[in-house]
Design a protein around this nucleic acid. Structure first.
Length: 519
RNA sequence: GGUCCGUUCGUCUAGGGGUUAGGACAGUAGAUUUUCAUUCUACCAACAGGGGUUCGAUUCCCCUACGGACUACCA
């Protein structure tokens, strides 16, 4: 019988989730939904030293913002069939499994102190050993249950001496697995070291906990970052020694996300260095060295729409094979397949995310966009009707990238200009223009038709009477009304502003600019 | 150093033994627009190098170069 597809996203709560992690979660989610399976989240918090308060909530909030839904997680209202979903809460069960390996001869106790380990590595390095590690050769010279007499081991254990449990990796054996993205990967066991399975603090390492939990949680596909590829053979060995090979999940190692500049994988530090977010949400942390509070910017706070962010992220390392660029989440699910994930790493493209954002912003109905403007206006204590806000965003939407641009670039709809674009004034302001515009302003309030067309009719009429061409005064009129040289259709602006306000602004400006008239 | 992974326009990528090597973003130019933008059109621009295999290789194989990941009682 076909097993139900079950995938997991397994972050550790050591800080904010960065976009690479979000992409991993996204691909897991798309795959699960596409296959009609389940998506679960497990918190990998086996390293108590690296625990960061707030990180777990951050992960939850990030995924929620992205629209990545979880079928099973530590935050579900109902516990879920494999609860708990935090490894720290599963602690008691790991030792049992480690013992299973000890009993079957695939693992052993090691009593070496950190100093002894360092000394061993130093010795091997000095001897120019190509690959210094705790392995089938070196373990014969270390203090472990393989070299020590049985009664001494027992005595050490009984006396509570600190110890770890290590995997006994075979000396020469080929370990292979078929990666869904990379095909067959073959590694010789001699290059794998005797990894620690249980730490001296009684917690399992990632390697043990990961395999035990994936097995218990009936995970069918492990989709994770490429940084895990080197340890995948070790995991295969673990499945084998536990006798779980027949239900071992299929692996898919995702290509890395690279820094936009230079080389290397994108790291948490790159964000502020490059002036664009690497985190989905803003993060308030502390600098590890100075202890000072730090703020890292997030896509959400920067004005990115979740749909745009997700669409962009999905295309970083995957493509549908068609020429379609715009995909909603349901469309992504429909089109997604692991086979179409590329092998090579992808670099960030800030222009592309912006483009996606502009696209998604323009696709939104004006009534929805108006909410962004209305919210900003409320912050500034400016009253505005919903209808007016809809009109304004309708006029502005073709020229903004972020929702906050509406307020930033449309302030003149609410606040009369205090200054006027210098360049336009010095070029276009003259006596003829001033008198024509003044006449226009005088007649405007009595003009009945204040639609953009109606206003244009009046303006044309006045200008004809004055013998001035429209092209000569329009830029000046725009600056006089808005203060700036760029913006949407001027007739629409004046229409939204209303006849009174427009006329007022023109008269004020004519007075203020009297001295600027060039002869 | 060792092990593993990768390499098509500036970027994200399609393609695949015979193609004018396609698209998108960015860039440039033009058209539209009373401004800026939008929109439209055009242009620019790539198979890392060397060997094989083959009638033919960007595509398959090998080597080199370059890049990256991993190499902890971190995940």
């Amino acid at each position: 019988m076909e097993r139900e597809v079950r995938v997991r996203f397994a972050p550790s709560p050591t800080g904010p989730l960065h976009i690479g992690g979000v992409r991993t979660a996204l691909y897991n989610y798309l795959f699960a939904r596409k296959m009609g399976g389940k998506m679960l989240l497990r918190i990998e918090d086996t390293d108590q030293n690296r625990f960061v308060p707030g990180a777990e909530q951050y992960i939850a909030e990030s995924l929620k913002w992205c629209g990545i839904e979880l079928d099973e997680s530590p935050w579900s209202e109902t516990p879920g069939p494999h609860a708990p979903y935090r490894q720290s809460e599963r602690k008691p069960m790991y030792m049992e499994y480690a013992m299973q390996l000890i009993n079957s001869g695939h693992a052993y106790y090691a009593f070496d102190t950190p100093e002894e380990l360092d000394a061993m590595r130093a010795r091997l390095t000095a001897a120019k050993v190509p690959n210094p590690q705790y392995n089938s050769i070196t373990r014969t010279q270390m203090r472990n249950s393989l070299t020590l007499p049985e009664d001494e081991v027992k005595q050490l254990l009984d006396s509570g001496s600190p110890y770890v449990i290590r995997l006994k990796v075979p000396r020469k054996e080929e370990v292979r697995f078929n990666d869904m993205i990379r095909g067959w990967v073959v590694v010789h066991s001699s290059s794998i070291d005797d990894k620690v399975l249980m730490k001296s603090d009684g917690m399992p390492t990632y390697h043990l906990a990961n395999i035990v939990d994936d097995h218990l949680m009936e995970i069918t596909h492990v989709i994770r970052g490429e940084e895990w590829l080197p340890s995948a053979p070790l995991h295969v060995l673990l499945y084998r020694y536990f006798g779980w090979e027949d239900t071992m999940p299929q692996f898919a190692h995702l290509p890395l996300l690279l820094k936009p500049d230079g080389t290397g994988k994108l790291s948490k530090r790159d964000g502020d260095r490059l002036g664009f977010p690497v985190f989905p949400l803003e993060w308030h942390g502390t600098d590890v060295e100075t202890g000072q509070p730090t703020v890292s910017s997030g896509y959400r706070e920067s004005g990115y729409l979740p749909d745009a962010f997700i669409n962009f992220l999905a295309f970083l390392g995957w493509n549908p094979g068609s020429q379609q660029e715009i995909f909603s989440m349901p469309e992504l699910i429909e089109a997604f397949s692991i086979e179409r994930v590329s092998k090579s790493p992808a670099r960030f493209d800030q222009n592309k995310v912006r483009w996606y954002n502009e696209h998604y912003l323009r696709a939104k109905p004006d009534t929805e966009l108006a909410q962004f403007l209305l919210a900003a206006l409320q912050e500034h204590n400016i009253a505005c009707s919903a209808e007016k806000a809809v009109q304004i965003v309708g006029a502005m939407k073709e020229r903004v990238t972020f929702p906050q641009d509406f307020w930033r670039e449309a302030q003149y709809f609410f606040i009369a200009p205090e200054s006027y674009d210098e360049q336009v004034i010095s070029k276009k302001w003259n006596a003829a223009t001033a008198s024509a515009l003044l006449e226009f302003a005088q007649e405007l309030p009595a003009h009945s038709d204040t639609t953009p067309e109606g206003i244009k009719t009046l303006l044309t009429m006045v200008l004809e009477r004055q013998g001035v061409k429209i092209g000569q005064v329009l830029q000046a009129l725009r600056v006089v009304v808005t203060g700036v040289a760029a913006g949407p259709d001027l007739m629409a602006i004046m229409s939204i502003l209303g006849a009174q306000e427009t006329a007022q602004r023109i008269t004020t400006a004519v007075e203020r600019l009297a001295s600027k008239i060039s002869a």
